[in-house]
Computed example of a mutant assay.
Amino acid sequence: MTENTRRDGLVSIGMLSQKTGVPVRTLRFYCDEGILQPHRSSGGHRLFDPVTTVDRVLLVRRLRGLGLSLTTIVGVLTDAVSITEAVAAERTALDTELGALRWRRASLVAVEDAPPMRRAARLALLATVHDRHTAYDGLVGFWRRVLAPLPSDMFDGFVGMNIPAPPTDPTPRQVVAYAELVTVTSDPAAAPAMSRQLWRPDPTGIHDKRELLTGVAEACAIAGPLVVGHVEPRPGAELDQFLAAHATARRERDTPRFRQRMLHGGNDTDPRIHRYWKLTTDITGETTAGAAHYWLYRALERATSPAAPVP
């Protein structure tokens, strides 16, 4: 009686290979890795239960075909993780890998598309966002310095609305814009400039920064559609809301003198600020809070010109 036709129903490794289409050397490897638990004949040969082992080998083969690691597969076989969980984790990892490849491809095209005399500079620029996640963390750190000591929940809300995450499928232009955005925030003077625009003059006089940002955000939300509609800045409810937020946070009244202080204390014309928000628009394709903020500044400028007598 041969090893392939035992009365106990066990089959040899050769027969298991025929039933599953998996090479003998691979089956031996699975045994060595603990994925398969063979019986042993009196002569020391590996023997397998064809009912359970065939299904087990086919499952391993199919999961390997999807790219799952042997460690993950062992987790599935031991019920430490379900097939659904294992496949979902693999898909997530693949999405991350594909995102990195798309970013890399867009970067390569951006270098190719640059004029010959500018390719070296373009290459140096894109090196700043080689690790796009670290670049994003740098932008978050920039705003953390500007907005300190804002409560974490409000800061997280600001991050979600105003700090562009690296696009999952970027164009070469977006990759370049992101690199330039990182460069802008790397300028030591950028954070103080942005802070002056946000808090306006005398930030130490602000009693409640949370209240101020909430009011300013509401004013920007009202002004946003006007920016999109290319409406010229002009005095109105949007500007009143903006100034009321600043006045209330400082425990002051919205007077002509107060408006003059707001007009000249915000550093609104700093080119770094405009560059930041333009690049953000280029990346997201959406109107930014910065654009609405500048629209309100222009509205304030028109509201106070010609200057009225200051009491």
Rank of each mutant, 00 (worst) to 15 (best):
P167I: 15
P151I: 03
V76A: 12
G205W: 01
V159N: 04
I83E: 13
V81R: 15
I222D: 00
I283D: 01
P38R: 05
V111G: 05
T53L: 07
T52R: 14
D32K: 03
E238Y: 02
L77H: 04
G9E: 09
R56D: 01
G44V: 01
A292K: 00
L10A: 08
H207K: 11
S107H: 03
G67I: 13
V51K: 06
P271R: 02
G266P: 14
S41M: 06
T287M: 08
M15D: 11
G266F: 09
P201Y: 01
F29H: 15
N4P: 00
V146K: 09
H264I: 08
V87F: 13
F155N: 06
S107M: 12
R173Q: 08
V111K: 01
T72E: 07
L243W: 02
P225Y: 05
I206R: 10
T128R: 14
A80W: 00
T96D: 15
T2S: 10
A80M: 02
E112D: 12
P164W: 08
T84F: 04
V159H: 05
S17V: 11
H274W: 05
Q260K: 11
Y297H: 03
P188L: 11
R145V: 15
G75Q: 08
P166C: 14
A221Q: 08
Q241E: 07
V24S: 14
